[in-house]
């Protein structure tokens, strides 16, 4: 409640905050205006040349389609393209901005059009959740959350004095760190269902056409989490063991048992030390997410590679980099917040 009061108390804002807020509002207004005046879809589609129109009409009659109509709506800017397939391919591209439609077949407009199109595709717009940036973000975030929780238990197991638990956790960590993630993904996605006679897609209803992707996503999430858990376990273990022995002794002298000591004293103090390496692990997972293409899931890297292959345009990596940077920026920010929260006492 206090933070809310602080935020709503505009008069007492710092000058820099006020300026930032003003910029933010202005940008927002500009975006709203630009979004309102941008050309409509019909307007853009209507720009196709007569030849192209003819091809589109022909398509309506036959099974095989020859023209792909692309329409990408990116808040303030529109991109529309018509491309016929085959050896005699024809492409017409248009960019719609601020109430006007520009031809984007060459020059600057072409680059702008490509950027809009590539960004749109990498973000996985107009697709199911298991695609592009949405897939990358979802998979990475869930993996890290499950990985850290699993890692805490594995780390506690590994430093436990109970032989069986200790051996099991040690073995687990050794196994998952000692084998490549791609192979683990294959084993979980292909071998395990093979051995136990089920399919990942069976988890979802038979009529669900996205079941394949959803099943693959579950398998990928399991593989990534199990793997990340092993890496996080080592991070957590190192953090826990970096806590002064005196803390255990003080807790024991005060009558706390082992779970209390861990949950009240040791783990809260080690979290701050875990954050930087966990942030690294997060970035590793972010990069590794492209491995899921092996099981039919398409992430940012895969989209950009595919675009590169089919269009040969190296420009595609610019939006890819920007998207990755924004994701990393956002999550680094969150990690910093958590770190600050746990280090107020320093």
């Amino acid at each position: 409640m206090n933070t809310l009061k602080k935020i709503t108390d505009i008069k007492n804002w710092k000058k820099s905050t006020k300026i930032n807020a003003a910029i933010f509002v202005l940008v927002l207004i500009a975006v709203v205006i630009l979004a309102a005046v941008k050309p409509s879809e019909e307007m853009m589609i209507g720009r196709a040349s007569p030849e192209m129109q003819k091809l589109i009409e022909k398509d309506a009659q036959s099974t095989r389609k020859y023209v792909t109509v692309t329409y990408n709506n990116m808040i303030i800017i529109n991109f529309c393209s018509f491309s016929s397939s085959g050896a005699n391919e024809m492409t017409e591209r248009f960019v719609g901005f601020a109430g006007k439609v520009y031809s984007a077949d060459k020059g600057k407009a072409k680059v702008v059009g490509q950027m809009v199109n590539y960004t749109y595709r990498m973000l996985g717009c107009g697709e199911n959740v298991m695609h592009g940036a949405k897939l990358t973000i979802l998979l990475t975030t869930l993996t890290i959350i499950i990985g850290v929780v699993l890692g805490i238990f594995l780390a506690l197991g590994k430093i436990s004095k109970k032989k069986l638990i200790n051996k099991f956790c040690g073995g687990y960590i050794f196994f998952f760190r000692g084998t490549p993630l791609l192979i683990q993904l294959f084993v979980i996605y292909f071998s395990i269902p093979g051995i136990f006679g089920f399919a990942w897609r069976d988890l979802f209803s038979a009529g669900d056409t996205e079941a394949v992707y959803k099943g693959a996503f579950i398998a990928a999430l399991i593989a990534f989490s199990l793997n990340s858990g092993a890496y996080c376990a080592e991070i957590v273990r190192a953090a826990i063991q970096s806590i002064d022995r005196g803390q255990y002794e003080a807790a024991k002298a005060l009558g706390m048992n082992y779970p209390q000591t861990m949950s009240l004293i040791i783990i809260p103090q080690s979290i701050r030390r875990m954050i930087p390496p966990v942030c690294n692990e997060f970035i590793m997972v972010l990069k590794d997410a492209s491995l899921v293409f092996a099981i039919s899931l398409v992430d940012i890297t895969t989209v950009s590679k595919n675009i590169m292959t089919s269009e040969g345009s190296y420009l595609v990596f610019v939006p890819a980099l920007i998207i990755y940077l924004i994701i990393t920026m956002f999550f680094t920010f969150i990690f910093n917040k958590i770190e600050n929260r746990f280090s107020v006492y320093e």
């Binding site: 389609k65 792909t68 109509v69 692309t70 329409y71 990408n72 393209s81 491309s83 397939s85 492409t91 199109n117 749109y120 595709r121 717009c125 107009g126 697709e127 989209v303 595919n306 675009i307 292959t309 089919s310 269009e311």
Partner: peptide, 9 residues
């Protein structure tokens, strides 16, 4: 085989 410019087709 390839994906068209709309990213899906």
């Amino acid at each position: 085989e390839d994906i068209a410019e709309d990213g899906t087709t």
